[in-house]
Amino acid sequence: MAEKTIKTVDSMVAEANEQVRIVSVEDAKTMVGNDDVTFIDVRDVREIAKSGRIPGARHVPRGMLEFWIDPASPYYKDFFGEDKTFVFYCAASWRSALSAKTAQDMGLTPVAHLEGGLGEWLKADGPVETKEA
């Protein structure tokens, strides 16, 4: 029997990074509070509870992303229909790279993801809020 060839996470993240705009932490800081930008936090609720989130960010569980973006889905979220730039982020920018690529592949535009994720955001003293998701 032939050995399975599995596409690696590293290769998928690298492909996403080639196809999706990456926003630096410094640039993202200037976007917080802008009416034309929505930050999308794809982390688990426990991560958000532990470390907070970028002010005003929408929590979109990674497992629900496609369902919340698709207007034909019963789970569709209206905010994905707004004329805004969607900046995805996670803890270290792997999940957000994959999420932003998925969103872009589904036709959501413009999308980007945060370089280095919330980890780099916190190192750069980016603002966080700790209210419930």
Rank of each mutant, 00 (worst) to 15 (best):
A2H: 11
E3P: 02
E3H: 10
I6G: 05
K7S: 09
T8M: 04
T8H: 07
D10G: 06
S11V: 13
S11M: 13
S11K: 12
V13R: 08
A14W: 08
E15A: 14
E15Q: 13
E15H: 09
N17F: 00
E18N: 13
Q19W: 02
V20W: 01
I22K: 06
V23T: 10
S24N: 04
S24F: 05
S24V: 06
V25I: 12
V25L: 01
E26H: 07
D27W: 02
K29W: 04
M31R: 00
V32G: 02
D36S: 14
V37F: 09
V37E: 03
V37W: 01
I40A: 11
D41Q: 07
V42I: 13
R43L: 08
D44T: 03
D44A: 10
D44H: 12
V45W: 10
E47R: 11
I48K: 00
I48P: 03
S51P: 07
G52K: 08
R53Y: 04
I54H: 01
I54W: 02
P55Y: 02
V60N: 08
G63M: 15
M64Q: 15
L65S: 08
E66R: 14
W68T: 11
W68N: 08
I69K: 07
D70V: 11
S73P: 06
Y75A: 13
K77W: 09
K77E: 10
D78A: 15
F79Q: 07
F79K: 05
F79R: 08
F79G: 08
F80P: 00
G81T: 06
E82S: 13
D83S: 15
D83C: 11
K84A: 11
T85H: 04
F88R: 01
Y89L: 07
C90K: 00
C90F: 02
A91T: 05
A92I: 15
S93H: 05
S96A: 04
S96W: 01
A100L: 00
K101E: 13
T102C: 13
T102S: 14
Q104Y: 03
M106I: 06
G107A: 03
G107S: 00
V111G: 06
V111Y: 03
H113Q: 11
L114A: 12
E115W: 09
E115D: 15
G117S: 12
E120G: 03
W121Y: 09
L122I: 15
D125M: 07
G126H: 05
P127M: 05
E129Y: 10
T130W: 09
A133I: 11
